[in-house]
Simulated scan of single mutants.
Amino acid sequence: MPETNRPTERLSTAGVSIWLDDLSRERLDTGNLAGLVDSHDVVGVTTNPTIFAGALSEGDAYDAALADLAGTDVEAAVERITTDDVRAAADVLRGVYDRTGTVDGRVSIEVDPRLARDTAATVDTAKRLWRTVDRPNVMIKIPATVEGLPAITETLAAGISVNVTLIFSIERYRAVMDAFLAGLEQARENGHDLSVIGSVASFFVSRVDSAVDDALEKVGTDEARALQGTAAIANARLAYAAYQEVFEADSTGRWTALRQAGAHPQRPLWASTGVKNPDYPDTLYVTELVAPGVVNTMPQATLDAVADHGEIPEDTVTGTADAAAATIAAIEAQGVSMDEVTAQLEAEGVTKFEKSWDELLTTTKTGLDAAGS
């Protein structure tokens, strides 16, 4: 790998696309997002209800928008504000989208998390958000719940790019890749150009360590404690091996035809990469998950840490599947069930996003009421 001047550039050269896990009107108005493209090699943006709830509750960047929307139904106002932000961010990143042949330059917006168990409503909302944002480089985020899987397929079949979120287990990730392949096969049958349909599979990282570490602490043995901080990276490395099986080895026998029709693979995206345990290095979930063809979406603090002192190796994932499987086996030998942990994390993830959505509605209503008084 040729020497480059900064850690984020070295990370990009190693094949990792850096996406910012944050968006706000202030970032857009001040040019901060555009600046990060230049200074920190950011080539994409992800959002979620928690991010928008935080953005609306801080500062005065949304005061004018709330004044314009005074008297509007609160849910309609939330959709207007969030889609306006995502559209503006997509415009900022349009040059990246064009330069990378539609691979990067993507901005994600999430379907109302209260619909996570409702397939039809998820699809309807995804289509509406796609029409409303009206930018080719937007991605609609759909959770990888059991009910979300057919929604992923149907949304892709309509020619809409999808960011699949809240993936915790390898088994569910394999189901997500199958839903992606089915969606592209249907999109091809429907006459859509596969080369412009993008998708990522957001595999959550730090939350896995938090949950497994707590379980290992309850076990309380030296052997159990020695395994703390190992589950998330091992789990993600196994996910990358599964990705390689499908998109490099074509283990399903379905990918080659789609690739020949112009399709891009559904890339693994490492999400929840901010370190929650202060005892761990603040760049842990970046430097230990370097591999070609992946996305790492980072909160600002993690991005700053990588830019400041990240030591970027060439590849820390390829060829690690056996060691990762051994780590997971050792954890389960301590009585910690990864199936139970990941099922719990999915349920908690949906609930947390629902709570953030409620907070977003409350904050927006407060702003609308103040603007209309």
Rank of each mutant, 00 (worst) to 15 (best):
P299K: 07
N48Q: 09
G349P: 05
E245Y: 00
L289W: 05
R188H: 15
G95H: 12
T363E: 14
I160N: 03
I140R: 10
A179W: 01
R267S: 00
T122H: 03
V317P: 01
D118R: 15
I152P: 00
A236Q: 02
A257G: 04
N5F: 10
K218F: 04
A182W: 01
R87N: 12
V246D: 02
R106S: 12
V294A: 01
T287V: 15
F168M: 00
T366N: 14
V205G: 02
R6C: 06
G54P: 06
E110H: 07
R128E: 13
D60Q: 13
A232I: 06
D134N: 15
I197N: 08
Y240E: 01
V295S: 00
E147K: 13
V317I: 11
S337D: 08
D73R: 12
L129G: 11
R25M: 15
E147D: 15
S57N: 14
M139S: 00
L166S: 11
R207L: 05
E346R: 10
M1R: 14
N296F: 03
R254P: 07
D84I: 08
T297D: 08
V42W: 04
G349R: 03
A89H: 08
V290L: 07
Q260I: 02
Y280M: 04
R114E: 15
P299V: 04
A226I: 04
A187C: 14
